[in-house]
Design a protein around this nucleic acid. Structure first.
Lengths: 157, 157
DNA sequence: ATCCCTGCAAATCGTTTGCATTGTA
DNA sequence: TACAATGCAAACGATTTGCAGGGAT
């Protein structure tokens, strides 16, 4: 499901398509397209870095200075509920967001610099089915995180 | 690596072995075996429910009324640092702990009642290697969570 | 006897909420 | 114009921390 290659910047055309998808999803849900929401949504469509809330906030504020952190949170909650953004929820550091590939897929997280990569791992879906079979649970969603050191940080240590 | 069958109570002998392992790990690290630590550690060795901090605290207090929540947290942090307990860190609800199989392994989490199962999924290790290969990250640890409904809750809905 | 561990309370940090004001549809 | 969205500040909940007193080795 993750169509994009790891950590490449999104081609303009592709991020434009995501912006359109997201705005349409908002409209379909009877939600208004405010400038603040549009700003958040553009950042989500363009970022390959899996930004944190704080990071999104900084960027929104830089082009829309009155925006509040609460609005960013509310927008993210809304987009999540429409399955237009994937929240990577971590325990002790804050969440990170993936707006380019909102369907669940595995991530590699660098413990040193916080970089996140998401190469395609086709086994994921099959593993979800295996988990359903062996546990008896109905599986709706997953979060598969691998923690370690990114290539850049490996060298530095 | 997960030797135990899903959600079966630990055989006494097995949980006793875990208690011994943990106390030994503490001793090896030059740490003291206090009654509070022993209480936490016993609960971890026996529980198949992947208890929350609060749940552990309740149980410790019931047999050792002066214990504080902070001590439970400190003990868990200590045991984590010695790889004697696995923390399942969730974003919006608190963490849950696995003291019976402290090596990373996949879990199924019920969104309704919070039950957690951990059947053996042999693919996990191979997937970690595949992730390392495709991302270039050095992978040290993983957390593989599948969210949905447990068998009991499926019926109730 | 030493010094680590405990227990308490206060601090922290990410996230959520209440409410008056503003702006989109 | 009506009603939903914003922005601010206060509330929240899980976890951490500082510190004085107590207990394990």
């Amino acid at each position: 499901m993750a169509v994009l290659t790891t950590n490449q910047p999104a081609p303009l055309e592709q991020s434009q398509r995501r912006i359109d998808e997201m705005t349409q999803a908002l409209r379909d849900a009877g939600q208004r397209i405010t400038p603040q929401r549009l700003a958040v949504l553009k950042i989500l469509a363009k970022s390959s870095e899996h930004p944190s809330v704080e990071r999104i906030y900084e960027q929104v504020v830089s082009e829309f200075p009155t925006t509040s952190l609460a609005t960013v949170y509310k927008t993210l909650t809304l987009l999540k509920s429409l399955d237009q953004v994937l929240e990577l929820g971590f325990a002790h550091w804050g969440s990170r967001y993936d707006g380019r590939s909102p369907n669940p897929h595995p991530h590699a997280v660098c413990q040193r610099c916080g970089a996140i990569a998401d190469p395609d791992l086709p086994q994921a879906e099959e593993m979800a089915q295996e988990m359903a079979r062996r546990s008896g649970y109905r599986i709706d969603r997953h979060q598969l995180d691998f923690f370690g050191l990114c290539p850049a940080c490996r060298k530095k240590i």
